[in-house]
Simulated scan of single mutants.
Amino acid sequence: MKSENFSLPDAELQYFPDFLSNEKADFLFEKLLKEIPWQQQNIKLFGNEIPQPRLTAFYAEKGISYTYSGLQLQPETFSTEILGLKQQTEELTSIDFNTCLVNLYRDGRDSMGWHADNEKVLGKNPVIASISLGGVRSFQFKHKNNKNLKEKIELQHGSLLIMKGSMQHFWKHQLPKTKKEVSPRINLTFRKIQ
């Protein structure tokens, strides 16, 4: 499987543009779009509660929950499709993931602001594996200590992005809003909660 390695200081970043075949990616996008129990929850941002600018669902092994931005997520049981993607990702990364946060970006107004996946429950150097289905969106990175260090990747339908090593200590990432017309996008992010 073809991969692209990005040589960023203080980070390990791998991108697999063809992780899934077009046929499989198309099937999964349509099935997940219809069958996931999508929710729009409020998050705390700078002391205010606002609706998340995307729809979400959380899947995990029994007994695991996840908290971020003041949200306590209660998990759904892994569906057959999400479990299959988890196993395929585990085979490639040799990491056992136990959660999956799924986001639906309905159009260019839906987004995710600058952040790092650095919650204590993820461990010291978490591996974050992110599968993209649907519309192509620009995923951006910036170094926390050097404002001149920036990178972006156009996340393709059926692709897998892996962030690991010390990346979450030194880099932030975002999926910004865009005025371009973009198709809906589903993102499945696998993590291991300690």
Rank of each mutant, 00 (worst) to 15 (best):
K2C: 11
K2P: 11
K2L: 13
S3N: 13
E4G: 09
E4L: 15
E4M: 13
N5S: 14
F6S: 08
S7H: 13
S7I: 14
A11Q: 00
E12D: 11
L13S: 03
Q14F: 12
Q14K: 13
Y15I: 05
D18P: 01
F19G: 04
E23W: 04
K24H: 09
F27W: 07
E30G: 12
K31R: 14
L32Q: 04
E35C: 09
E35K: 14
I36W: 04
I36Q: 03
P37S: 12
W38P: 06
Q40L: 08
Q40N: 10
Q41M: 15
Q41G: 14
N42E: 14
I43Q: 01
N48M: 15
I50H: 02
I50G: 00
P51N: 06
Q52S: 09
P53Y: 10
T56G: 07
T56W: 01
Y59W: 07
G63H: 05
G63S: 08
Y66I: 02
Y68M: 08
Y68I: 09
Y68R: 08
S69G: 09
S69A: 12
S69H: 09
G70K: 00
L71M: 05
Q74K: 13
T77F: 11
F78M: 00
S79I: 05
T80W: 12
T80H: 15
G84M: 11
G84V: 03
G84A: 15
G84L: 10
G84K: 10
G84P: 02
L85H: 01
K86D: 03
Q87H: 10
Q87G: 08
T89I: 08
T89S: 08
E90V: 04
L92D: 04
T93R: 03
S94N: 14
I95Y: 06
F97N: 02
F97A: 06
V102K: 05
V102M: 02
N103C: 05
D107N: 14
G108R: 01
R109Y: 12
D110E: 05
G113I: 09
H115R: 11
H115D: 10
A116T: 09
D117Y: 10
D117I: 03
E119W: 00
L122I: 07
L122G: 01
G123V: 09
G123P: 00
G123E: 06
K124V: 13
N125I: 03
N125R: 07
V127S: 12
I128P: 08
G135P: 06
V136Y: 11
S138G: 10
F139A: 04
Q140K: 13
K147H: 15
K147E: 15
N148R: 12
L149F: 07
E151S: 13
E151D: 13
K152E: 11
K152S: 15
H157P: 04
H157A: 05
G158L: 04
G158V: 01
G158R: 02
L161V: 06
K164I: 10
G165F: 07
G165W: 04
G165D: 06
S166A: 14
M167L: 15
Q168N: 09
H169D: 10
F170M: 04
W171I: 00
H173Q: 06
H173F: 05
L175I: 14
L175M: 11
P176S: 04
K177C: 02
K177Q: 07
K179N: 09
K180Q: 12
E181H: 14
V182P: 00
V182K: 03
V182G: 02
S183I: 02
I186S: 01
N187I: 00
F190H: 01
R191F: 01
K192L: 11
K192T: 15
